[in-house]
């Protein structure tokens, strides 16, 4: 579990910091975009400087040092700054990146994710900048134990209200993903299948492949279904089939020598 949360930090951080780096400026940037870039660049420097020794401590198995370092994670000190900027641009599109940042980084008991989330939903549900909101909501459920029912409801609302197809399909995909990753009922499964088909009918960009894979999982890889055939080479180049093992209980293990 520890490792999973460490990966989660990496994933969310990389993705949320994917925007190009801003130039260093002495005085406060005049535009919201400039301010966001400057804050993010500053955060990235602080975070990387903190993360290196933390990772090193974890790698050498020094739990005590790692735990001590965890308390010095700079994220907490940036949260109020991003929140203040969000307040400064309240009600405008300029507030959205700051709100998303605070929502994404308020975790592990740090900061309050409910406020930026409520604002995003209440004031910005039609924004074209919400592309990452669906994945953030989904990961909050599986990694932080956020309210599943509420997350499903919010994803449905984004899918219905946001006019940008890539955001609506993201919401449909990640809504279905939550259902596949957490115990759900038959009605939810049916809805997920319908949503994924709807997403495939709209989609563009990266989503179709992911939607198709998840749809396949819902339709063919559920408990109680006959496993799909695998016919492929073994590591020595000899072709064999999963059905060669009929009559035996099969433990199918997806593994690698990492």
């Amino acid at each position: 579990m520890k490792r999973a949360s460490c990966l989660a930090i990496g994933l969310l951080t990389c993705a949320s910091l994917a925007a190009p780096q801003g130039e260093e400026t002495e005085q406060a940037p005049a535009t919201a975009k400039g301010l966001y870039k400057a804050y993010e660049a500053e955060f990235r420097l602080a975070y990387d400087a903190w993360r290196r020794p933390w990772l090193a401590a974890r790698r050498r198995g020094d739990t005590k040092a790692a735990t001590a370092l965890e308390k010095q994670d700079p994220t907490g000190s940036f949260l109020p700054r991003f929140a203040a900027a969000a307040a400064r641009y309240a009600g405008t599109e300029d507030a959205v990146p700051f709100l998303l940042w605070t929502l994404t980084h308020a975790r592990y008991g740090r900061g309050d994710p409910s406020k930026p989330l409520a604002t995003l939903i209440a004031a910005h549900i039609k924004s074209k900048q919400l592309e990452r909101l669906p994945i953030v909501l989904a990961l909050r459920v599986t990694r932080e134990g956020a309210d599943r029912t509420k997350a499903l409801e919010l994803q449905a609302r984004i899918a219905a209200k946001n006019p940008h197809p890539e955001i609506a399909t993201n919401a449909l995909y990640w809504r279905s993903w939550i259902i596949s990753e957490t115990p759900g009922n038959a009605g939810e499964h049916k809805r997920a299948v319908a949503d994924l088909k709807k997403a495939l009918a709209i989609a563009g960009g990266q989503m179709p492949a992911r939607c198709r894979s998840l749809l396949f999982e819902f339709e063919h890889l559920q408990i109680g279904m006959t496993a799909p055939e695998i016919e492929a080479e073994d590591i020595d180049g000899q072709v064999f089939r999963l059905t060669d093992y009929r009559g035996k209980v099969v433990m199918l293990s997806f593994w690698g020598d990492w």
Binding site: M225, T226, A227, Y245, R246, V250, S253
Partner: peptide, 11 residues
């Protein structure tokens, strides 16, 4: 990731 299939090939 591990899947367990019974002797009939059912997940």
């Amino acid at each position: 990731t591990v899947y367990l299939l019974d002797a009939k090939g059912v997940i």
